[in-house]
Amino acid sequence: MLSEVKEHPSLLVVIVNYRTGKLTIDCLHSLVGEIQALPNTKVVVVDNNSGDQSVEQIETAINSQQWQDWVTLIPSDYNGGFAYGNNLAIRPALASADKPDYILLLNPDTQVRSDALKYLINFMNEHPHVGIAGSRLEDPDGTPQRSAFRFPTIWSELDSGLRLGIISKILGPKIIAPPVSDSTCQTDWIAGASMIIRREVFESIGLLDEQYFMYYEELDFCLQANRAGWSCWYVPESRVVHLVGQSSGVTLTKERPKRRPKYWFDSRKRFFVKNYGWLYAVLTDILWLTGFCLWKIRSFFQRKADNDPPYLLQDFLFNSVIFKFTN
């Protein structure tokens, strides 16, 4: 399963845009220096049927900046979600005569710091047993964001709903988001905002699961890779600015997030049912709901600020596996 290490490996960067044309152009600007340092790098921008001026804006930028040699734009006439958009670029690349050695999934709301891609490539070259690696994501001021995670369990779902310090401490090894590491380390999965994948991983497990519209698809992909024997690593030397939640508003961190869309709940449900079965999915729902109800009671009496998305409890219940069984 180990890959042959090339002296000058090829890299395909895939950026999926949805109504973030200006951010995508800024992301491409940040890649110019990386392209010069890694000449075997190509970029494909997929527009997921934005329906605004994104295609025209990006096309104009490519032409005016003379990026045609390394950037290709694919305007899709259908918005099938994050996995679908990435697969539009990955599928033909894997079927071509000149297959890329690595594929980097990069969000349009990112800007890469100097040598960010080079650090990822070097790490993958030096560790041929590693299938996936991710960058350190950070705010524009350099504040790190949590981007290396553990696989979710029933206990992490309880902790997510309950939010009680002593329980979080007891469940420390089970919580999804451990503290940000300053060192390169192995992890279960990493955020898809900047995720490099060895070509052989796709050959082992296939493409991203397009049944996920948005969210949980990179988690699912890392789990399938893990089950196939590929490890996943966090590489903090590769630094990428991430302007969180610009496309969906779901993961905004500087303000109260918007109401969670149905596709978020559908993706969560699909992940647990697909990978652990219906019974386990029901248990995760029960524990999250129990924990969240206790949290709401405690926050009411302690007068804690409400920073949850609107209607979170109702939306979670009505989109849960439990509700499906009782209706």
Rank of each mutant, 00 (worst) to 15 (best):
T41W: 01
L117H: 05
I205L: 07
G142N: 06
P39T: 13
E34L: 00
C293E: 11
Y234P: 10
D308F: 12
A148H: 09
V235H: 02
F300K: 15
S247T: 08
P140Y: 04
V43T: 13
G229A: 10
I121V: 13
Q66N: 14
N226P: 00
S247Y: 01
K296Q: 14
P144N: 07
P39A: 06
I62G: 07
L117W: 05
L38K: 00
L243A: 06
Q224A: 15
A95R: 13
V273I: 14
S10I: 01
I175L: 14
K22A: 12
L219S: 08
G192I: 03
R19V: 04
I103L: 10
G142V: 05
G165A: 15
L287H: 02
P75N: 07
L287F: 13
N86I: 07
F151K: 04
V14D: 05
K174A: 12
Y263C: 05
S181D: 14
D139Q: 11
L104G: 00
E56R: 14
R298Q: 03
W264G: 00
S183C: 10
G291D: 00
E237L: 07
I297V: 14
R198W: 05
I196S: 02
G161W: 05
S50G: 12
N40A: 13
S96R: 01
I167P: 01
T284M: 08
